[in-house]
Amino acid sequence: MAPHVAFQGEPGAFSEEAVRCVFDAAEVHPSATFEDVFEAVEEDAVGRAVVPIENAVFGSVRVNYDHLRTHAVTIIGELQLRIHHCLMAPEGATIDGLEVVRSHQQALGQCRDWLRAHVPGATPEATPDTAGAARVVAETGAPTTAAVASRRAAERYGLEVLAEGLQDNEQNFTRFLVLAPADTDAPPVGAGEPKTSITFVLQDNVPGALFKSLAVFALRELDLAKIESRPLVGQPGRYRFYLDVHGDLEDEAVARALDHLREITMELQVLGSYPRGATYPEGADR
C-alpha cells in the first residue's frame, strides 16, 4: 500500500520533490501550512510527512523546530535536496519588464543577490510557498509578474522559464526531515549512520551551564552535528537548545550522555533517532 505523505505547499513544490525522493509511490497530501502538516501526522490523518528544517544558504526554518517540540511526532529519517531555482512568468513576459517577483521568503532569500543584479526594479513579494506563487502567476497571467520556483512548477502551471540557476550559491541544499506519529513503531527511512535529535532547557542560566551540557557528549567522544537555540517565550535571556548527535538512542554512550544531561537540565525531549540521510540528486556535491 502506498504511504500517505503530507508536505507544505502546492503540487510542484520542492517539498513534494523531497517526498518523491524517499517514497517511490506515495499518495501525497499538499497542506497550506506547516502547522497543518504536523497536525495531520499527529492525528494519524497521514502516516508520514516531509518538512524542511534548514537551508545551507538562508538558514533554519525555525517554526519547524517549534513544531517538532509541540506536536506528537518523531523523526524517522532525513535527506538533503539540492535546490535549483527558476524565474518563470506567463508567455511573452521579459526579465526587463518585470515589476513583481513572488515566492516563498526562503526562496527569495536564497536568490537575493541574483534578483538585485538582474531585476533591481522588481518588488519581491513573499508567498506561502514556491509552487503556489507559480500557480497564482499563471492564473493572473500578468506579464509583469514572475515567480521563483522549481522547473517542475513551471511545467505544471504552464509558465515560461526566463532564467534558471538563480540561487546565490551552487551548494544550495535544503535538509528535510521525515516524520511519523510518535506513538507508532515506524521503520526508519534510509540506511546511513545513526543520528539522534534532542531538545533541552538548562536548569540555570549561569556561566558554564551550556559548556557542561555539551561536555556530556565530549566526555564520551560523541560527535555533535548541529546545535540550534530558540528563545524561551516570556523568559528574556533564556533559551531552548536543539542538538543533533551522531549515534543511536540505543547506543550505551548516547544513552549515558542523555542520562547525564537530564541531571543538569530542567527539560529534555528526544525528537527522534534515525539514519543519516542521502543527498539528492544522487552524486550531487555536498
Rank of each mutant, 00 (worst) to 15 (best):
V19Q: 08
G77F: 15
A142W: 02
R220M: 08
P90R: 12
L81T: 00
K195I: 02
T74Y: 05
A13F: 07
A13C: 12
T94F: 10
R220Q: 10
A154M: 14
C111Y: 03
A40S: 12
D168G: 05
H246T: 05
R156A: 09
T70C: 06
L210D: 06
P281H: 15
A49S: 09
A13T: 02
Q106P: 07
H84V: 10
L268C: 07
P143Q: 06
E267K: 13
H29C: 14
V19F: 08
Q8D: 05
S197T: 15
A25H: 06
E16F: 01
T279W: 01
R156E: 12
V148F: 05
A284C: 01
A186K: 01
T184E: 14
T70Q: 04
P52Y: 06
E35H: 08
F211L: 04
P236M: 13
P181W: 11
E91A: 15
L219P: 02
E10H: 08
V73M: 00
L98F: 11
E160G: 00
T140W: 01
V161C: 03
L210F: 06
I83P: 04
G12I: 11
H85Y: 09
P207L: 10
F200D: 04
A278P: 01
V254H: 08
V73N: 01
V161W: 03
F23H: 01
R256M: 00
L87E: 09
F58R: 07
D285S: 13
T74I: 11
H84R: 11
V178M: 15
V270D: 15
Q269M: 09
V57C: 15
A253M: 07
E155W: 06
Q203I: 09
F7I: 08
F173M: 08
W114Y: 15
V63F: 07
G192F: 12
Q235E: 12
